[in-house]
């Protein structure tokens, strides 16, 4: 066992020093591994793994964290009720739309921008850094100040779009145009912000992929008189494909995680439940109103399964890329 743990380093180093070093060595490699790794693992288990098992149990119970009653075992009732609830399906649909539209838009815009910004130009460093700043901001804060941008009377957004009469302008976050209810407008407003915030990230990711494509591929294509369209499909796209995949997966996972902050900052799920993504719904069930802890846990598990499936693909690709580089 202990020899297994010995590193490549100590095995090659030992013959050179012999007994001298082993007597001076305070800790064996095995001990160092344990001391170095276990605090991290222990914390992760205590704060992440244990709660997950706990909530797995809760998901099979009827329980409210604010009621003075012990959890009651109801087997799969929570899951069955969630799947049978029309409202839940609409929440899932909203989430799906949010994720799909924002990721696709970010990818298209990001790819386009990356192709445009491929060549270094005067000030390109400053420009790319500046547009990345929103990404490092707290999403909830971003949501808040966009709420001001979207304000129907004094917000900048409508003004910049050219609406000078507030009465006729769209009230984005209330899903109304000139007083007429227009479903989907609020969701679109949230998606716009998500796209604004994250397109530069996708662009940068793809840009780093573009820069890594060896010039000789294009030179060979130029010698063969390949059209630029052909070059794009046969050289550019296949070469950046892994990075595109990383971007898509990363944004999809984040759209599940961070959409909560953004939506809470902008609409709180409203108007009605038009922007209620699954994370917001989960929060409401768990921490507001009747505190349906058991049901929320069941819903959490359903989200978890989706996320695990996506992140599995993500991490596998990530590992592949790390090994390549």
């Amino acid at each position: 066992m202990s020899t297994e743990a010995k590193s490549h380093v100590s095995e090659t180093a030992r013959p050179a020093v012999g007994g001298l070093r082993s007597s001076r060595r305070a800790l064996s490699d095995r001990a160092i591994i344990n001391i170095f790794i276990w605090p991290t693992l222990a914390l992760l288990i205590a704060i992440n793994v244990f709660p997950l098992f706990y909530s797995l149990y809760l998901s099979f119970t009827d329980y409210s964290a604010i009621a003075n009653q012990a959890p009651v075992w109801i087997a799969f009732d929570n899951f069955a009720r969630i799947l049978a609830s029309e409202q839940m399906w609409s929440v899932f649909a909203t989430t799906g739309q949010y994720v799909l539209f924002s990721v696709v838009l970010q990818l298209l815009l990001g790819f386009g921008l990356a192709l445009l910004a491929r060549e270094k130009f005067f000030g390109s460093g400053i420009v790319t850094t500046l547009i990345l700043a929103p990404m490092m901001l707290s999403p909830v804060v971003v949501g808040l100040f966009w709420k001001l941008m979207y304000n129907p009377t004094f917000g900048y957004f409508n003004y910049l779009l050219g609406f000078d009469n507030p009465a006729l302008a769209p009230d984005w976050l209330a899903s109304r145009i000139a007083g007429q209810p227009t479903p989907g407008l609020a969701l679109l407003a949230v998606i716009i912000v998500d796209v604004w915030m994250w397109t530069p990230f996708v662009m940068l990711l793809i840009l780093s992929g573009l820069k890594a494509i060896p010039d000789y591929l294009y030179e060979a294509a130029a010698i063969d008189r390949a059209s630029s369209w052909f070059q794009f499909w046969r050289i550019t796209l296949p070469q950046v494909a892994p990075l595109v995949l990383i971007a898509v997966l990363f944004r999809t996972i984040e759209a599940f995680n961070k959409s909560f902050d953004l939506v809470m900052g902008m609409t709180g799920g409203g108007p009605g439940d038009q922007t209620e993504v699954v994370a917001v719904n989960l929060y409401r069930q768990a921490f507001l109103g009747q505190w349906q802890t058991g049901r929320a846990s069941a819903l959490a598990y359903m989200v978890l399964i989706i996320i695990i499936a996506i992140s599995n693909i993500y991490i596998r690709n990530l590992n592949k890329m790390r090994n390549q580089s």
């Binding site: 909530s55 989960l282 768990a286 846990s297 989200v303 996320i307």
Partner: peptide, 26 residues
């Protein structure tokens, strides 16, 4: 090693809302 690293990264992918319910009780 790979499984451990995978496990460590996967904890990051958990949406906050999912972990928050049991954590709140804990």
């Amino acid at each position: 090693k790979d499984d451990l690293l995978f496990f460590i990264l996967s904890t990051r992918m958990l949406p906050a809302v999912v972990v928050a319910v049991p954590l709140f009780l804990m």
